[in-house]
Design a protein around this nucleic acid. Structure first.
Lengths: 217, 217
DNA sequence: GCATCAATCGGACCATCGGTCCGTATATGC
DNA sequence: GCATATACGGACCGATGGTCCGATTGATGC
């Protein structure tokens, strides 16, 4: 009745500590290196705390991932074009893939750890759902003749964390995103209905400024 | 010097038993239901035997998967067109995706269990390598202007076991393959160099006869 | 048949992991 | 200060993947 009490200060502090610890472990070892015992220890917290906060290993990683992509979600729903509403679907699509690619490149280990933890439920994950809805909406607008739902899944499948790492050579950290853009270009290029509507390959050249809002380079 | 001894009879028998047990467990429970203890028990074998034979959980699943896809590998390398050599790249591509889709649809649980077990090393898996090489060769022949290597990865990413299940409604077991074909059609349709070279959508209609050789429906 | 010997077997054993539980400590509101 | 809800921590649990080594057994030469 009295409006639920605010979160206790130590709780907030611990949440941050756990998240940071996870981040560090993720950075210094592979995704398998992040055991919840280790996370708790490094965060200086009991194991129970980690679970009370995040529910499960998947929840923890999900939370971290969510943090990394919050800015993009925001930009996509309420930000300015071309990411946000207002620009034509094709441009939004291109901008979105670019931004998502940047996140994927920066967080490939985190992403594959998360995929691993989610296992079967990956497609029920709220973040995934969000990306998928956004993508399929844009695709549907651009190519109403195709199965946008499936296309969106197919496009998202490419952002598999392990694949991103597999395809990111040490010397060229953006190769993945470039390739994704090329692939997406294929989809929109020359729709069946209006042949040669756009012969110009407006893909493949990405604006020099990157990371629209993902911060934390 | 005397040429290494042939494999002992019990060894052969046990290998089969383990493989069959895995298959059964996979069928009756989810992929997580397949613990190596259970496999060993159901096969009537010691746990050590399972490991000596297959090395690891991943190895076991890999072996089973390999068994399921052997026929397709064979058909692709030495079989008759359109799967085998001889047919134009586009047709081989279409046939190949159809066949791979059929395998994926029939073995979605096995595949996702395998992906789960392989984790990071999925892209080093010999089967994956094989599919990838084949695909990128065909794609390269069809569209030399594109990054066939990447495209092949992107196409294979769609065959994620969990995704296949997610996209296979109870009533329509072949929806996945149909969609894949549509997607692949996009890639070959109207190459940039020869606009409208092929307006005809030769995709989406698959021959009534399926399962070119994957046997074991 | 039988002895020999290496290949194979089997299951006890281990470390680790994700996850649970509950007695204890403490931040917060009054 | 005090009462109380809240959060803490780490012992504990069952299960899992993987290892090890003494016991067993199939093949081979005679």
């Amino acid at each position: 009745m009295a409006g639920q009490r605010a979160e206790r200060a130590d709780a907030v502090r611990n949440r941050r500590a756990v998240l940071d610890a996870t981040e560090r472990l993720l950075a210094e070892g592979g995704g398998d290196h992040v055991s919840l015992d280790r996370v708790a220890a490094l965060a200086g917290v009991g194991k129970g705390t980690v679970f009370r906060r995040f529910g499960s290993r998947a929840g923890l990683l999900q939370a971290l991932l969510e943090e990394r992509s919050r800015a993009l979600k925001e930009a996509v729903t309420h930000g300015p074009p071309p990411l946000g509403p207002g620009a034509p679907a094709r441009e939004r699509l291109s901008a979105f893939l670019d931004a998502l690619g940047a996140i994927a490149e920066d967080n490939a280990v985190l992403m594959s750890a998360h995929e691993q933890a989610c296992a079967e439920n990956k497609y029920a994950d709220p973040s995934y759902r969000f990306w998928h809805r956004h993508l399929s909406t844009l695709l549907g607008a651009e190519r109403p003749d195709l199965d946008a739902e499936f296309l969106a899944h197919g496009l998202l499948a490419v952002f598999d964390g392990a694949l991103v790492r597999h395809l990111t050579p040490p010397g060229d950290p953006h190769r993945f995103t470039r390739s994704v853009q090329q692939l997406a270009g294929l989809r929109c290029q020359t729709s069946g209905r209006s042949p040669l509507a756009s012969a110009a390959p407006d893909v493949n050249k990405r604006p020099p400024a990157r990371r629209p809002g993902s911060g934390r380079c």
